[in-house]
């Protein structure tokens, strides 16, 4: 039975610290574009912390919501791609094949979550950042769409490691960079096809909900809304 990867996000636990964003940049060779380009909307945060203020002053509350690619089963980004750069893998991921991408940016327009990012210029890494590129992740060139992959390089490494050790892949073997770096353990990653995995248990909870679920995208990220009022 193929794996089916899922992520659960506990909004009660998220403190909005941004460690996941930094870890994701480092893990996935995501270029930083500098303050000017970032102000124009060219920043490429595969995972972002959405920050919403709720209530009327002085009774205001700050809410955080980490948003990354929801790896939808019914992904609007996939069929619109004319070159199959964006397609569905057998393990339920929305794959983005950089070499096949010609940069129509149609997928990003179709994505209701705005979690796809575009290389507007050839990326540069200021010294000494160029020394910390991850060899497991391809560096994208100008004109290519990119997005959260659920750290597919870690998924594959975990599977290879388990195979080398002649054992089944265990729950918790694979952690994407964001989940690994989350200090409050707000992000739980795992195989949703394994009923005993932590993420499966969370997905079965009636509290969980998908983001913009009413659009029919059938996302594979489950959010647990806050129930504390702090």
């Amino acid at each position: 039975m193929p794996h089916k990867w899922g992520l659960a996000v506990d909004l009660d636990a998220c403190t909005g610290c941004g460690a996941c964003v930094t870890a994701c940049h480092a893990e996935n060779n995501i270029p930083t574009v500098g303050p000017d380009q970032a102000a124009r909307g060219r920043a490429m945060h595969w995972i972002r912390i959405e920050r919403y203020w709720e209530g009327e002053f002085p009774d205001v509350r700050l809410r955080f919501r980490p948003v990354m690619c929801q790896q939808c089963d019914n992904a609007p980004c996939e069929p619109v791609c004319p070159t199959y750069a964006s397609h569905h893998t057998e393990e339920g991921l929305n794959a983005q094949v950089y070499n096949r991408c010609i940069g129509t940016r149609y997928c990003a327009n179709a994505c209701p979550y705005n979690v796809r990012f575009f290389e507007f210029f050839n990326p540069v890494w200021e010294k000494p950042l160029h020394l910390q590129l991850n060899p497991d992740v391809s560096v994208r060139e100008v004109g290519v769409m990119e997005k959260c992959t659920f750290c597919v390089q870690r998924i594959n490494a975990g599977k290879i490691q388990a195979k080398a050790e002649a054992r089944e892949l265990a729950d918790g073997d694979i952690k994407p960079a964001c989940a690994q770096s989350c200090p409050s353990k707000a992000l739980v990653f795992g195989d949703a096809s394994d009923p005993d995995s932590a993420v499966s248990k969370l997905r079965r909870s009636s509290r969980g909900a998908g983001l913009l679920e009413d659009l029919g995208t059938r996302p594979n990220v489950t959010y647990f809304p806050r129930h504390t009022e702090a």
Binding site: P76, E78, P79, Y84, H87, H88
Partner: peptide, 9 residues
Amino acid sequence: AWRLDTGGM
């Protein structure tokens, strides 16, 4: 030629 799945279609 390539039975690629896109968007569950």
